[in-house]
Amino acid sequence: MTALRILHLSDTHFSGDGSLHYGVVDTAEHLRLALAHVAHLPFDLVVISGDVSEDGSVASYERIRDAVIPWAAEHGARTVFAMGNHDVRDSFRRVLGGGQPDAGEQLLPGTDPHRPVFSVAEHDGWRVIVLDSSVPGAGYGAVDEEQFAHLHTALETRAKNGTIVVVHHPPVRAQTHLLQALALDDAHGRALIGILRDSDVRVVLSGHYHLPITEFVSGVPVTVAPGVTNISRAFADPAEESSINAFGGSVITIEDANVRIVPFIERPSPDDVVFHFDAEDVAQIIADAGPA
């Protein structure tokens, strides 16, 4: 089996006009620093597992495409992007297609730009499947039956080296009340793991929580990348929500039967807090962006 090295990034939250995230974070600079941190390494894949954009604008996707795809090519990698809850399907598709813009990908049939962004691509014996867990206008995640059907069909045939699944909302629990309220629908998470169990899937790459988590669910390894834009506080009061001005990612190596996940978190500035929502703020966000 050929080894596979992945740079797993998530939650880049680019804006079309380059405005600061929460008025604090230069997201393009955080991405530049994250890429520079591992620039001495070769990669096979560079994956950004959702919330690629903050404002869903075409310009935001063009900015991140121009920042990531040439860097990935210089390091021997192809690029993979997934939809997150801040992304907009129409704009995402116009610039990034089905999420694997430099691959001969198979897409969901149909031409409606508002349909979920699902794709399958194979390269050097490795298959990458991109799912769309976004729910337009909401913060929580869901995967529709059509995607599940196509996922099941794709996995009926095993890839030579195995399959990587990319989905923004992870099928594991969050650390805080807010992120749990905006997590992947629990029944959909169980259905996803049920399809992946006993398949050739080597790892599931997710984001959304802005902090590193790796959990085996019924034998399926699920890993959440630290946020590029900021890092959530994992062990603060779970009824509140706050993040620090830091960036991170993970380097994942798959070789033979082994999956090695090495996350990194770095601080670019002494300015620590990006945001802090108290319990009242959290309750309002849940009401606005969680399931009805």
Score class of each variant (00 low, 15 high):
R5F: 06
I6L: 04
H8T: 01
T12P: 14
H13Q: 02
D17L: 04
V25W: 13
T27D: 07
R32M: 12
A34P: 09
A34E: 05
A36T: 08
V38N: 10
V47F: 02
S49A: 02
E54Q: 12
S60C: 00
S60P: 03
W71Q: 03
V80N: 01
N85D: 00
F92C: 08
R94V: 04
Q100A: 12
D102C: 13
G125I: 00
V130Y: 03
S134Q: 06
S134L: 03
Y140Q: 06
V143A: 00
E145T: 01
H150R: 15
H152L: 12
T153P: 11
N161D: 14
H168Q: 01
P170M: 04
H177Y: 13
Q180W: 08
H188P: 13
R197H: 15
V201S: 01
V203H: 05
V204T: 02
V204S: 00
V204H: 00
H210V: 07
I213F: 06
V224L: 04
A225Y: 00
P226M: 06
G227Y: 06
T229V: 10
I231E: 09
S232K: 08
R233Y: 15
R233L: 14
A234P: 05
A236W: 03
S242D: 10
I244Q: 12
N245M: 08
F247G: 14
T253Y: 11
E255L: 07
D256M: 06
F264M: 02
E266L: 06
S269M: 05
F277L: 15
A279V: 00
D281C: 11
V282W: 12
Q284K: 14
I285G: 14
I286H: 10
D288G: 02
A289R: 08
